[in-house]
Every structure is written in structure tokens, then in C-alpha cells.
Design a protein around this nucleic acid. Structure first.
Lengths: 240, 240
DNA sequence: CGGGTCAACTGGTTAAGACCACTCTAGCGC
DNA sequence: GCGCTAGAGTGGTCTTAACCAGTTGACCCG
């Protein structure tokens, strides 16, 4: 109940429901789910809409609603054996922490993180390295109060999201991400070991936890010759 | 009424309305628009939702709804109004056909389209233009037998997928797409009206119909200053 | 004149219900 | 046995009608 919006609670319920289903399995009909969850159909449909948009569910008119063809977290896999979010389990990833410090949010981050301008924000810049080769530069910003006692070493290896969950009880749930093309500036080129004006992907990501609180805003530069975003799209009958 | 869905008519109305507005200008309040267009607020909001998702409009709680920033944002998930194929400003898109012809598949396309090397393949290069501004270069390849009698004019306006469905009975269903960063070469720069070595997105897409047949392989160059890919992700409990 | 308060906007969420369109299947008629 | 049809079930769309939650500015009081 704490989570606030019914739509979000319904969506989370469906995520849990779908978690141990195989791709293509049917979920209960909308009318049944309404009764079971005690919400109206528009609300239920709004929740399903979210999941359809992100590929978790697939609707088929007249037949039913089914789990999507694959796990969402794998849908945007980057080339080197891992998603944009989860470094590969093989453990070859390392991060060199270039900056680590707290300062007021300032005007930019105020809107990005939806905080008051004076709220302390932890800023971390890290260079992500695989097999001694620099791959990406990540600039993370998170409300400092969320992670009291976090130290740079926590972010050098392993999954940061795991640390968030297990040490700070922050349960990351969703993210909105934009990807655009750019070229490296002088600093970025040097850090990544590529020429200046080299092709690169600029990825901005806003991450939320189960309660829809904004957990982090991250702006990353990925080497254009090492990263590729793959996705699978499904059309409904009317898409042009 | 011909257009069918009210939501779509409302969306088209708003697209026209917004067409000659500067970025950041306000549009009428939702309640006023309801009265003016004779639709209910949920319907009106559904239309606005589409445009917000695709970046045409921006909402601000308590203040109003405004026209979005210049950049065209595309949702990675195929939604009726914001797919990779029918971008937001649907009505205003034009395509200049630069090449249009058939030739044997050759070694490259043999694997891409999964055809025999001698199979005739229709190759189309088109420059996509919005408001007299070049936005992208598309190189399409499709098995010629799929679209007998297709002429260049079929691809200059409107939705190509609609033509496929209604004229040739080819029902596009899914696509696998990869996005990477690149910079324009001399030819591309000239066509797109940008400097050489300008940031751009290279998008490759393999499209299949309902029977899992490969319908097309497309390689496109999108202007980096006009395109941005947006996606929404949900994590399940175990994602790291 | 300054400052706080409140009313009137704005968008945000939810409800309950009606009807349409599509899919599948059981059962009827041949 | 085969083929068609009718109905039940599914998602798709739309309406009316509330109420919640930020934002703004006019107004009143000190």
C-alpha cells in the first residue's frame, strides 16, 4: 500500500507474477485480474500498457495476453557479453574511480533527480575497463542520503545494484534510458584511448526503485567501436 | 470518421496544431481541448500520452503542456505513434528515392535475408526528409518476389509497412535491430546536409512477418543531432 | 509596502460501465 | 464426417464523473 499509485502496484504484481513464467505463457484475462486485484479495468490496462511497451508482455486481440519472448533485462544487451546495467558475471570488469564526492544538487540535477537544489548529491565518475581496455566513462549522480557510508571500493568491482539492494535496501526496479550518437571530446578521448572526435554512444539513464523514488541519474560515454545496442521489436496490427 | 480511432484523430490534430509552434510553447489545457474537440478527457490524454512518449509534447504538473524540444525522440518499443517506422510527425514525412532496382542477392545479403545467392533482391535507397530537412538515409533490401509491381512512388509517402500489408499481404510482425554510433562519410554528410565526420546512429534492422519469413534488411544512417532512442526497462528481482 | 494565504487554475489518477472487434470452439445441420 | 454458424471469451475504445496534487497569482492582513 505504501507504494502509492495503484497502477504501479499492479505493475509490480504482474512483474512478480511473470517472473517464473516461460516466454509465451498466458496471463489471466483482464477482467479476472481486475476482480483479483480489486482495481478497475482502465487502471489494470494502464499497468499492462507499461509492460507491453517495455516488452514484458504481448497482447493478442481476441486471444489473451502473454509473457514476452525474452527477459527485459536482456533486451538491450551490449555486445561484450553483458547488459548496459549488469556487468558480466565473469568478473573481468573493473572500474577505476576517477572522482568520488558529495556536493549540492544544483539546478541541472534538481530536475533530473527531483530533489531540492541544496540536497547533497554523490557524484561518481568511473572508467570501466575490460581486459585492460577502457570501454566507457560513467558519471553517476545519486542522492547521498540513499547511500550513507558508501566508499569508492564498493564501486570498483561487482554489481553496484547488488550493493544498493543488500547494503542500503534500495531495490532498483525500472529505468528510462535515452541513447544518442556523439563523438568524444579531448578528455574522453584520452581516457578511452581513442582519437578525439571518435564515434561514441551517449547514454542517459534515470533509475527508480520499487517505490518510484529516483535512485540515480547516470550519463555515460561508450566507445562506439565496442558497443552496440540490440533490441527486438514487436508490432501490433496497426503499426506503420 | 474515416481515420477510425478518435485517439488517432486527436493526435493528428495536435500534431498539426504543434507544427507551427516554437519549442516550449504552451498548448491549451486538457479540459479546453476536450470541449473543442468533443472528446472525453481520457481519450484526449491518451493522444497526448503518445505525443509525450515520442517527445513532441512535454507535460508539467500544475503548469500546463508544452511543445517539446527540437530533437526527434524515438521509442525503442514499437508504439502506434512512435515506432522507428512511423515517427511522430507522421504526415510531414517525405522520402526522396535515390536508388530503386533489382539485382541478385550476392554473398552479403544471402545471409542477411537468408536467400539463395541468385535470388533477385530489390534495393532501395531513400533520403527521409521532414520539413525540407534531411533526417536519415535508408538502404532497404527485400526479396523482390515479395513485392511484385512495387514502384518508387509507393515509398515516397505514407507507411511502407501499410503498403506491404494491404497490397502484398505481407504482415510485418517483429524486427531485430542493432544501433551503433558512427560518423558520416563524405557522401552521407552531403545528403544529410551536415559536416563530414558528424555524429550519427547506424541502425541495422531485420524484419520478419507473422510466418517468421524475413521481409527486409535495412541499414540506416540517422542524423545524431536529430535522433535519440528512448527505452523503458523493468528489472526483475534478480537483475544485478 | 511586504508577506502569507487561499482560490482557481493546471495536469494526475481512478472508477464503473457500455459497446466494438477479434478469436476460438462447441454444436448444429447437412 | 464435414462445414458452417452462433456464442462465449478475449482485448480495444470511449464516455461520464469524481477527486488528488502541484502551481500561480490575486487579495487581504499586518
Amino acid at each position: 500500500m505504501r507504494a502509492g499509485l495503484k497502477r504501479d502496484r499492479v505493475r509490480d504484481f504482474l512483474l512478480d507474477y511473470v517472473a517464473d513464467k516461460k516466454p509465451g505463457e498466458a496471463i489471466p484475462s483482464e477482467r479476472d485480474l481486475c476482480k483479483e486485484l480489486g482495481v478497475s479495468r482502465p487502471t489494470l490496462r494502464a499497468a499492462i500498457d507499461d509492460l507491453v511497451r517495455s516488452g514484458v508482455l504481448v497482447r493478442e486481440h481476441g486471444r489473451g495476453t502473454f509473457t514476452g519472448p525474452q527477459r527485459v533485462t536482456q533486451a538491450l544487451a551490449a555486445t561484450p557479453s553483458g547488459s548496459f546495467y549488469a556487468p558480466p558475471a565473469e568478473g573481468k570488469w573493473l572500474s577505476a574511480i576517477l572522482e568520488f564526492g558529495s556536493s549540492p544538487a544544483g539546478p541541472q540535477l534538481t530536475s533530473r533527480l527531483q530533489l531540492a537544489p541544496a540536497t547533497p548529491v554523490l557524484r561518481v565518475v568511473r572508467l570501466r575497463v575490460v581486459d585492460d581496455e577502457p570501454m566507457a566513462i560513467e558519471r553517476l549522480h545519486l542522492p547521498h542520503e540513499l547511500v550513507p557510508g558508501l566508499v569508492p571500493a564498493d564501486m570498483e568491482t561487482g554489481s553496484f545494484y547488488k550493493v544498493l539492494r543488500e547494503r542500503f535496501g534500495v531495490d532498483v526496479r525500472s529505468a528510462v534510458q535515452t541513447i544518442e550518437a556523439t563523438v568524444t571530446d579531448e578528455t574522453e578521448a584520452e581516457l578511452l584511448g581513442v582519437p578525439e572526435h571518435f564515434p561514441a554512444l551517449l547514454v542517459e539513464r534515470t533509475t527508480r526503485d520499487v517505490n518510484q523514488r529516483i535512485v540515480e541519474f547516470t550519463r555515460s560515454i561508450y566507445r562506439g567501436d565496442r558497443y552496440r545496442v540490440t533490441s527486438e521489436l514487436y508490432f501490433d496490427a496497426e503499426s506503420g
